[in-house]
Design a protein around this nucleic acid. Structure first.
Lengths: 230, 230
DNA sequence: CGCACAGTTGAATCTAGTCAAGGAGAGTGG
DNA sequence: CCACTCTCCTTGACTAGATTCAACTGTGCG
């Protein structure tokens, strides 16, 4: 007796998120939905740099990705986690040699027709706002890495993910998906996987956050926010 | 018998830099020079957030500034150093509560007329490229803070400043101005002033870089670049 | 001269990294 | 169904790198 799992337009996470950035009209939605019809899927742990260089602006529909930089000796730093609703612009200037975008989980995306978007003021605004928010995230990431201890980093970063997932309707009630290994978290947080493990244990012991089975639960959201001034 | 120290148009550092981002025509230059005629000066250690919120896009003509985030207990992280030729866009979305732009040294800047710029494709491109480069710097900063040790951070960061200053003709021959206290450097590098001091001593001992009297000199540029893969 | 500020140095401490071993769970093939 | 493997996580012992605290130096400036 379950209802059919059909997603109406505003139920697509990526569309929910975009329409919160700027109020999208029917024309805007039509463009995005049409683009989403040509969605492509990629397996986990695949490099997307090449594929997306051609595809111009790309909208993530489902799954997680990340942008990372590599050093010769194998050290890796993830600068951003990319979620459904995020738009990745192909910008050869902004990308250094050792920067890459890779899938974290299985991922579906579509490319957006930049010419048609340019004609739509609302969509154009939405993408502009998205870019501004991206900058804000980069600066927050800098603050985390430069001036926060391990526990603060983890809490702040998880709260950030929660807010972002919430913006596309994928998180609520202090709970969210977190389909990441501790190694990926470590590379995003500038820590080692071992230390992430210890920190997670601490968070559990202190009844702050539980990460388990691909999901994270905030047991004490207020205290979490207090820890990192959010 | 010294020639008069008059700056012709292409000798203004900020203009040099902009015209390297995109080839500017006479019209473009006229707009920038006219804007520069209305330059304003600010003393060191002043907050610019309020002043620049009104001034729309601002072009730094002379002096250094920085964008920093503060935590309640006084910890500070500088996300970006702003140099002559840098353009600061007023973007309320990108700025969180605790973000501010302050002068590091005495500074002169002018505000750019966004309406007139919009009519000039070359200038528009230059500003777009500037924004992309800014993103690249943010990601490099993330890599430094997340995955580099103190020595690497300092070397990488100084090389970056050298390249940026070189782009507006303010650095050459392995030498550049560096009008910063070690405390500012520490806040940019995610270290303490004490540790910056120790690291600088190391660099001196190893004949890599000398910082003295407001200037930095690369004694062994090749080895420096090798250290940080640049 | 005395003061403020930036930088240097030493000693003790702390946080996170490294190395290594072991355990839980999922998937594979006999 | 049971080894076997692989990946991910956990834990312990030890080490390395950076912070903290404090004292001291040099320099510019009123």
């Amino acid at each position: 007796m379950a209802s059919r799992p059909v997603l109406t337009v505003p139920e697509i996470p990526a569309v929910i998120r975009l329409s919160r950035l700027a109020p999208l009209g029917p024309d805007d939605l039509a463009i995005v939905v049409a683009a989403a019809a040509g969605a492509r899927s990629v397996a986990p742990r695949q490099d997307l740099t090449a594929a997306w260089r051609a595809a111009a602006p790309v909208l993530i529909l489902d799954g997680w990705a990340h942008r990372s930089a590599l050093l010769a000796d194998g050290r890796r730093q993830i600068s951003e986690i990319l979620l459904p609703g995020d738009v990745v612009v192909n910008d050869p200037i902004a990308e250094g040699r050792h920067l890459a975008v890779s899938t974290t989980t299985a991922l579906t995306y579509c490319s957006l027709p930049s010419d048609r978007i340019a004609e739509q003021p609302a969509l154009t605004t939405a993408l502009k706002v998205a870019r501004s928010l991206e900058q804000r995230l980069l600066r927050r990431q800098i603050l985390r890495l430069g001036r926060m201890g391990a526990l603060e980093r983890v809490v702040d970063w998880l709260l950030e993910l929660y807010e972002r997932l919430g913006a596309c309707g994928l998180a609520s009630d202090g709970e969210m998906p977190l389909p990441l290994t501790q190694e990926i978290m470590a590379d995003a947080l500038g820590l080692t996987n071992v230390h992430v493990s210890r920190t997670m244990t601490l968070l559990r012991r202190d009844n702050l956050i539980i990460v388990q089975g691909g999901r994270a639960t905030f047991l004490d959201p207020l205290r979490c926010r207090a820890i990192v001034e959010r």
